[in-house]
Amino acid sequence: MQKIKVILVALAVTLAGAVSADHMKSHTVKERTKPTGKVYRVGDDVPKAAPVVAATQSAGPRSGEDIYTQKCAACHGTGVAGAPKVGDSGVWVDRIAQGEEVLISHALEGFQGSTGFMPARGTCTDCSDEEIAAAVKHMVANSQ
């Protein structure tokens, strides 16, 4: 029984040495440490990725409710950065009194108020002016 243990230990040490030796061979070291990308220099022929093309809306502009849900609710649903929460008529009264044109202008161009900041277009880079206006109208209708 003692001989079997000695043989098994010797076999394990030999196998471990063989694995370790292969691990340190130059071809495996080069494979494991090769760069993951390529550095290009001026004048190199750099491959170019195809531009990403946004899907077009074939059904026309999105509704004000859709724009609000997808783009505006993150701030106007929670009150982040002083954004007036939709449905809180108390914070909308003075804003609504300014008129729809002013609210749409603030949404399109951005606005710094005393209680918060409205970034231009609400940072919605794929919204048309018409969609922004529809979202403003939706928020006003649900906050009176």
Rank of each mutant, 00 (worst) to 15 (best):
I7V: 14
A74H: 00
Q2H: 09
G77T: 14
T33I: 10
M139Q: 06
T56N: 02
K38A: 15
G110F: 01
K85N: 13
V19Q: 10
K5S: 12
I104E: 11
G79C: 12
L108F: 05
P84T: 02
S63M: 07
P51V: 03
V80W: 08
K71A: 06
I96K: 10
K48D: 01
Q2L: 04
R95A: 05
I104H: 06
V91Q: 11
A59T: 02
F117C: 07
V53G: 08
P51H: 03
V80G: 00
L11K: 02
F117P: 10
A49R: 08
R95P: 00
D129F: 02
V93R: 10
V52R: 07
G99A: 04
L15I: 13
A120G: 10
Q98T: 15
I7N: 08
Q112L: 11
A141Q: 07
A83R: 07
E100F: 02
S143I: 00
V19C: 11
T33Q: 06
G43H: 11
S58L: 00
P35Q: 03
A55M: 01
G110Q: 04
V13M: 00
G17Y: 05
V52W: 02
Q2F: 02
V53I: 15
G60T: 00
Q2Y: 08
M118P: 00
C75G: 00
F117Q: 10
A107S: 07
A73S: 12
A81R: 09
I104V: 15
N142L: 03
C72A: 00
G87D: 14
G37P: 03
S89M: 00
G113K: 11
K30V: 14
D45G: 12
C75S: 08
P51K: 04
G122T: 05
T36F: 11
L11W: 01
V93N: 05
S143D: 04
M1A: 15
S58T: 01
E131H: 06
S26Y: 13
Q70Y: 09
A16I: 07
A18C: 02
V46A: 08
L15T: 10
K25T: 15
M118Y: 07
V19I: 15
C127P: 11
F117D: 04
Y40G: 07
R95C: 04
A107M: 06
Q70H: 01
R95I: 01
G87M: 13
G79L: 04
V9P: 03
V39Q: 15
L11H: 06
T33V: 07
P47A: 01
R41I: 13
D22I: 03
K85G: 13
K48E: 11
C75K: 08
K3A: 12
T115F: 14
T33C: 05
Q57Y: 04
P35K: 12
T115Q: 12
P84C: 09
I7C: 01
T14C: 02
T36W: 06
K34A: 13
S20F: 05
H106P: 08
D126P: 10
I67K: 07
T115G: 05
T14Q: 09
A12R: 04
T28E: 14
K25M: 14
V93F: 08
A12I: 14
D88P: 05
D126G: 07
T78P: 14
